[in-house]
């Protein structure tokens, strides 16, 4: 079976990420040669695998929270009984998205303290916004004719939602989740400044200690992780509209 280009891209990115995460120690001589002045040319306080998994856990957990809460809120305000709150929710989402993620992250510290928890909360809040906006836009984009015929054929409100509206809104909702996850991947790296252990840690430690090798190691892996996630969402997006391209 031949791979489609999107799957191929995802596989390639995954391979690159795995090679970087697992093979970084093997590059120690290279970094030692590039930066002969450094005592420790390889970040070894934690393994890159641990950092990557922690990073992914933070991004994953915050994105899941955002998708659950944002999705529910978006669904609620597109139902007749919740429509009155739609303007309010959209205002909050629009306003919130102008707040730079790094500032949201920093502001979580005075209210919650240091550690992974403020990072999780800040990332979840920030990821909520694109999810809410795109859930509303996606559900709103379902044509009235389709909604009307679903009702007319005898689907109840929940059957209409799950069988018709959500599958049709899926591409737009997915785009929102993708935005949230990509932004969070970057913000999670910065979250190592508030005490969360992520792939940003080698970068921050390297910047503070003038160790460019650390910076490059962390930056390469976090960049590769972002590319993997982006390629994954690209693949998912194509899958969610497979009915549009069939035939």
């Amino acid at each position: 079976m031949r791979l489609d280009p999107l799957t191929g891209r995802l596989m390639l990115a995954l391979l690159a990420l795995a090679a970087l995460v697992l093979g970084m120690p093997a590059l120690k001589p290279l970094f030692a040669a590039l930066y002969p002045a450094l005592d420790r040319p390889l970040y070894e306080a934690e393994t890159f695998l641990t950092l990557t998994l922690d990073h992914m856990a933070l991004v994953g957990a915050s994105s899941l929270i955002a998708v659950a809460a944002g999705g529910l809120a978006g669904i609620a305000v597109t139902r007749p009984w919740g429509a009155e709150f739609r303007g309010l929710l959209e205002a909050v989402a629009t306003m919130g998205q102008t707040f730079p993620p790094v500032a949201v992250l920093a502001l979580a510290v005075p209210s919650i303290g240091f550690g992974p928890l403020p990072a999780l909360i800040a990332l979840s809040l920030y990821a909520l916004l694109p999810v809410v906006r795109n859930t509303i836009a996606g559900l709103e984009g379902v044509s009235d004719a389709v909604r009307e015929s679903a009702r007319g054929l005898g689907m109840g409100p929940w059957e209409t939602l799950f069988r018709v509206e959500l599958p049709l809104a899926a591409p737009v909702i997915l785009a929102g989740v993708r935005t949230a996850v990509i932004v969070n991947t970057g913000t999670a790296a910065i979250a190592s400044t508030v005490g969360a252990k992520t792939l940003g840690l080698p970068i921050i430690v390297g910047l503070n200690g003038s160790n460019q090798a650390y910076v490059i190691q962390g930056a390469l892996i976090v960049g590769a992780l972002a590319l993997v996630l982006d390629a994954g969402f690209e693949r998912l997006a194509a899958w969610s509209v497979r009915w549009r391209t069939e035939g």
Partner: peptide, 15 residues
């Protein structure tokens, strides 16, 4: 509604 058929001008097939 399930025991009455319903057809509209804009068809409304589920795409």
């Amino acid at each position: 509604r399930r025991r009455m058929g319903y057809v509209i001008q804009s068809v409304g097939l589920f795409p």
